Simulated scan of single mutants.
Amino acid sequence: MTKYKTEKRKARVGERILITEDGFSLGYYKSGDVFTVSSTTDKGVTGENDCFILHHEYEVIVGEHTPAPNLDEMDYDELIALVEDAMKTLRTRAYKNGYDQGRFDAKIEAPKSDQQKRDEIVAQAKEDVRRLLESDYGHDHEFIVNTAKRTVVDLRKIKGCTNIVRRGIAKCAPNDCFNAHIGKAIALRRALGWSVPAEYMNVPQPTEIRVGDVVEITEKTRRKLKTTVHRIENGIVCSNEPYMDFYLAHARRIGLLVTDPKTIDDTRAGKGE
Rank of each mutant, 00 (worst) to 15 (best):
I236S: 01
H55L: 13
L18A: 01
K226Y: 15
R167I: 05
D77K: 15
S31D: 00
N234D: 10
A11I: 10
L257H: 09
Y76V: 07
T41R: 14
V203A: 02
E57V: 11
D136R: 01
V145Y: 03
L188A: 02
A94N: 08
A123G: 04
V165M: 14
R210Q: 07
L71C: 04
K171R: 14
R93E: 15
G32S: 05
I17V: 06
A187C: 06
R118N: 04
M201H: 04
A170V: 04
E219T: 07
R223V: 14
R9W: 09
Y29S: 07
K5C: 00
E199N: 10
E233I: 10
N49C: 04
N70E: 15
E142P: 00
L82I: 04
Y137H: 04
A148M: 11
E127Y: 08
G44H: 04
L18F: 04
G138S: 01
L132W: 01
P261S: 13
K8C: 03
E21Q: 08
L155M: 15
D154H: 03
R231Y: 14
K157S: 09
F104M: 11
E48N: 02
L225D: 03
P242D: 09
A86Y: 03
K107N: 09
V229A: 02
M87F: 10
T92G: 12
R16N: 09
S239F: 12
F143H: 06
D140S: 13
V122C: 02
A185P: 01
P111C: 05
S39P: 03
K149L: 06
I209Q: 01
G14I: 13
A269V: 06
V196H: 13
Y58K: 00
K226C: 12
D128Y: 01
D100C: 02
E64D: 02
A187Q: 05
N146H: 05
D50K: 05
L54N: 13
L132C: 00
G255V: 06
G47S: 06
Y58I: 06
G102V: 02
S25N: 14
C161H: 05
E233Q: 08
A269W: 10
G212I: 00
T46N: 05
K112R: 15
E127P: 01
R103L: 11
I254G: 10
M244C: 10
E7P: 00
Y200A: 00
K43T: 14
G212P: 07
A11G: 14
T20W: 04
K262H: 13
E59A: 00
G14D: 07
T2D: 05
L82E: 11
I182N: 02
A81P: 02
K226N: 14
L256N: 12
A187F: 10
